[in-house]
């Protein structure tokens, strides 16, 4: 099988997913900045909490959402969740990664097979290295907080 890396149109889908998430879930827009490419995924700076979605099917790799505690505290409040525990921060970080990956299926189709999220705190962050192509980081700010979506996927090209 051959693989191809993502192109700018593919990355735009994830940027739009970030905007949609914050608009719908919190009624407060995020400012999504220009994506940049990392040739070394291990250079990613992780935030306090991370949610990782591994993908398979017509793809290989992972989509990771990384955010500081303050951002997740306010997202939970916007969702009406009063319990501000690490357990809930991990849960919501994984769920956001799930929502952003799931929304990308509008563009990629059901071939983007999504696993249940794996969440971690900063020190326990797992760097997925399932894809051979470059990783893209989509930085975004919401209120005073900065978060990152890391998209590290290859598309399988079937002959």
């Amino acid at each position: 099988m051959n693989y191809r890396a993502l192109n700018p149109e593919d990355i735009q889908v994830f940027s739009e997913a970030i905007s949609t998430f914050f608009e719908r879930m919190t009624q407060r827009p995020a400012r999504v900045r220009t994506a940049y490419m990392l040739d070394r995924p291990e250079a990613i700076v992780w935030n306090d909490f991370n949610g990782v979605i591994q993908v398979s099917g017509g793809f290989r790799g992972a989509v990771s959402f990384s955010a500081p505690r303050g951002l997740l505290t306010e997202v939970l409040s916007a969702m009406g969740e009063a319990e501000q525990s690490d357990e809930n921060f991990l849960d919501v970080a994984g769920e956001i990664a799930n929502m952003l990956s799931g929304r990308a299926r509008r563009h990629f189709g059901e071939g983007l097979d999504i696993a249940t999220p794996i969440s971690s705190v900063r020190d326990g962050a797992v760097i997925p290295t399932l894809a051979a192509g470059p990783a893209y980081v989509i930085p975004h700010t919401w209120g005073p907080y900065e978060a990152h979506l890391v998209v590290h996927l290859d598309l399988i090209q079937r002959r």
Binding site: N98, S101, G102, E110, I114
Partner: peptide, 9 residues
């Protein structure tokens, strides 16, 4: 109630 947004699903 799902994040999977493709029509086929």
């Amino acid at each position: 109630v799902s994040a999977l947004s493709d029509k086929a699903t």
